[in-house]
Amino acid sequence: MATKTYREALNDALREEMHRDQDVFIIGQDVGKFEGAYRVTQGLLSEFGPKRVKDAPISETAIMGAGIGAAMAGLRPVVEFMTINFTLVAMDQIVNNAAKIRYMFGGQVSVPLVIRTPGGGGQQLTAQHSQNLEHWFAHVPGLKVVAPVSPADAKGLLKMAIRDPDPVFVLENLALYNTKGEVPDEEYEISLGSADVKREGKDISIFAHSRMVNVALRAAERLEDEEGISAEVVDLRSLRPLDTETILNSVRKTNRAMTVEEGWATFGVGGEIVSLLMDQAFDDLDAPVKRVGGEEVPMPYSKPLERAAIPSVDRVYDVALQVLA
């Protein structure tokens, strides 16, 4: 085991996969000479050269489309978007091409590519650079969506995503890049459709993904310390496919549940979990399931306003008490 930042873990995953498979290459804005807007691709241009670390013009549609076309022709592109907000410019390519090409053409080609991009707020980057839109992609059959929170999961899931034969959207998070964690030295596998119980508990299940897992874990600690409540925190890790078995097993144990997501809850990830529980765990529930999401405003600049817009440990704590009331 070694202690690594989330950023280093991603960088290791890219480097190892590029050594393993000559067809793996990176394409994106400023991934080469600039070494990545958030330095995830640091050192890779000098190690692998410009053929395999391709700086691209500010053309998200062409970057994404070129990745898809290269994947159809047998390569394994890793497409980096500087932030998830810029994927909107490439939405046609992702939804109309990447997700549909295999099906629409009767299985004659696959599209083995990875889309890597950070979401999330908290950096005073304001309305156009702070969004959480990963569930838009999770809505689409043909795509897979993972959202790791720990450095170990980030490395493991990115490697699995690169080896997957279909398009995988890997959600990173701006506020996680400098966080640290233990990463195994040896090879390890994480299935793309697997949730992870990050903290065991018996009184309430808290479902979260990406950075909100850390918020939920801190809320769980407070619930334990201040109220003696044992909260289970389930890191969804993968939004599509969703690990319904782990979710249901947790609720069958705790009989109470809530969801936490950084993005707007309306039509969001929490709603999907609630629907699953209504459908398959109705009799196991002792209380209505509650959702916590970001406040439904465009992200403001002012620090106090921004802080108020993003789900906090306090809010998760308060809502957990409501569910347990």
Binding site: A66, I68, G69, A71, A73, G74, L75, Q93, N96
Partner: peptide, 17 residues
């Protein structure tokens, strides 16, 4: 392809391969 112009970037990608 059914989205006007949407396949042009794919052709660029195939040429890249």
């Amino acid at each position: 392809y059914g989205i006007v112009g949407g396949h042009l970037p794919l052709a660029v990608g195939a040429a890249l391969a």
